[in-house]
């Protein structure tokens, strides 16, 4: 536990230092959402309806941004060897990395999402659903992302491969995440948030083991 906390603290420290990825993901998120009205027009009704979906898609894309470096940086500078020889174990490394990734990207994205929703004219009644769906769903994005990042660990341009690997896997999260927001816009009850919670829970529980397996196969060969 102490070792996992140490790794988590180290990664948070690195991400917040100069050149860290924490701020960049946020800027990217805001840029995508800001660009949207230029593409589809500024009709407030239209924007209100697509707001949840756009914020969700932009959040997922922003999550992918620094994902390829999640393990690769440690792999290249020899730290992954040292972590592998620590009492953490690969499952511990994976869990700490997933939490770190969420704290660095998922959580800040969730926090600034209401600001961007304001730009997109999201009705006030949908804000709780937006926050809740991001809070529940983004950890699953980090968890799935870490598994894919571990799989592409030894690939030099793995960052280009990640979106392709993750697109079909992330579709359910986007569907239910955006669906939960849309339900509030349309004032209907569709249960999306419960499906999202179920998918997220399963993903978060399984991912450390899948990620650990992927790390093992990439390191020990």
């Amino acid at each position: 536990m102490r070792a996992a906390a140490a790794l988590l603290a180290r990664d948070l420290r690195i991400a917040t230092r100069a050149g860290g990825s924490a701020v960049l993901a946020l800027a990217f998120f805001a840029a995508v959402v800001t660009l949207l009205p230029f593409g589809i027009g500024s009709d407030p009704k239209l924007l209100a309806r697509v707001a949840g979906g756009v914020i969700w898609v932009a959040a997922v894309l922003a999550n992918l941004l620094g994902l390829d470096r999640l393990f690769q940086a440690d792999y290249e500078d020899g730290n992954l060897d040292l972590l592998a020889l620590s009492p953490l174990g690969f499952e511990g490394i994976a869990a700490a990395k997933i939490v770190a990734h969420w704290l660095i990207t998922g959580l800040p994205l969730t926090v600034i999402a209401p600001l961007l929703a304001l730009l997109l004219n999201l009705p006030p009644s949908a804000y709780p659903a937006l926050l809740l769906s991001l809070l529940i769903g983004t950890p699953a994005v980090s968890a799935l992302g870490s598994a894919a990042a571990a799989l592409t660990l030894s690939i030099r341009r793995g960052g280009l491969l990640l979106p392709l690997l993750l697109l079909p896997l992330l579709a359910p999260v986007v569907i239910f995440g955006a669906g939960a927001v849309l339900a509030q816009v349309d004032r209907v009850e569709n249960g999306a948030i419960w499906f999202l919670a179920a998918i997220s829970a399963v993903t978060i529980l399984l991912s450390p083991f899948v990620t650990a397996a992927a790390l093992r196969l990439n390191l020990s060969d």
């Binding site: 598994a147 894919a148 799989l151 690997l165 079909p168 896997l169 579709a171 359910p172 569907i175 239910f176 499906f195 998918i199 399984l206 899948v210 397996a213 992927a214 196969l217």
Partner: peptide, 16 residues
């Protein structure tokens, strides 16, 4: 590993 992740996810994808 990727194929198995996909296999586990396929029913979820289909359902969603």
């Amino acid at each position: 590993v990727l194929a198995l992740i996909g296999a586990v996810n396929l029913p979820i994808i289909e359902f969603s």
